[in-house]
Amino acid sequence: MDLPCGTRNFDYASDMAVLRTRTHWGLFFLLLVFIFTAPLYWSNYWLSIANLIGITVIAITGLNILIGYCGQLSIGHAGFMAAGAYTTAVLTGKLGIPFLASLLCAGLTAGIIGIVFGLPSVRVKGFYLAITTIAAQFIIIWVINHWTSVTGGFVGMKVAPASIASFSFNTEPRQFYLIMAIAALVVFFAKNLARSRVGRAFIAVRDNDLAAEVMGINLTYYKLLAFFIGCFLAGIAGALFAHWSRFLNAENFTLADSILYIGMVIIGGLGTTIGPILGAVLIRLLQQGIMYITPVLEGTFPTLPAGFTTGIGPMVFGLVIILFLILEPRGIAHRWTLFKAAYRLWPFSY
């Protein structure tokens, strides 16, 4: 266990607690204070990046439950996000349903669609499932693009900002609080799900689904439950994205995004709670860095080819995914664990 020397367990509750020592509590408190006072000294630009990161963390946490814990590869996560986003856009915009109810509906819709496309997972796995979820991605986006009367088709649709009672989340700082609160809840939920009966069943299914079935785990139930939870969170993330960007278009949810989400989970670390957070932060910051640095580079080196601006992003992300898989398949989360161990044992690391 990664606990400091002298920390003893006297009962089950203290053994299972997430935060054990005074330092843990202190750091946790500092983190909360840091996050929730951020709007006081961050500019709107950085807040918008933080909002996007928060939304991504929610989506990636769902994907991590699906891939990292249950071992079911889904390459259609952006499609499930789109389902949630358009559900809340239609419910709040056209039917006037309050935000919280439509957020829940968005999650449920995405979750149910996830179950439908997850059905083949009962019989097949690995590559077959990957292909099915790619098909899901294309079918969902096609429906959105061609069901013009409801979704606005290729033109897209406007979405009103989120509002609870008469309080409207119409500025970046307000949305920041909303998104961060939900993201914190989701991370807390994921952390506890992984330690529960359900999470242990997921891990058993991931490691060997036949062995899990022999041990009495209902494969159909748990695989579809993983799809439901993963896609439910994707739907929530999509709904928050809709209210945050206030304009929806199928271009926001492409296959490339789905691949990028998988990349984030891998880079962060599969099957860990902190992994999705690290992966989302790293990739989104990398995106911002590339967006910042390409005009500068083009200014200094005018001989760069015309496709430099659009091409450099995918190249870098593809390379990062490949390099992480080859060099550090357990992701940044593993490095983080190593760092904590080294810190705890310093200076006597033997």
Binding site: G126, F127, I259, G263, T310, G311, P314, F317, I321, I326
Partner: peptide, 30 residues
């Protein structure tokens, strides 16, 4: 380098290649 790694890594590494090649294409032929 990925021989004998889990099937998940083998599938996702081809996704990484896909992403990279797409970048190369937009880079060279905008």
């Amino acid at each position: 380098p990925l021989i004998a790694q889990p099937i998940l890594s083998l599938i996702t590494v081809t996704l990484g290649i896909a992403y990279f090649l797409e970048g190369v294409v937009t880079f060279v032929w905008p």
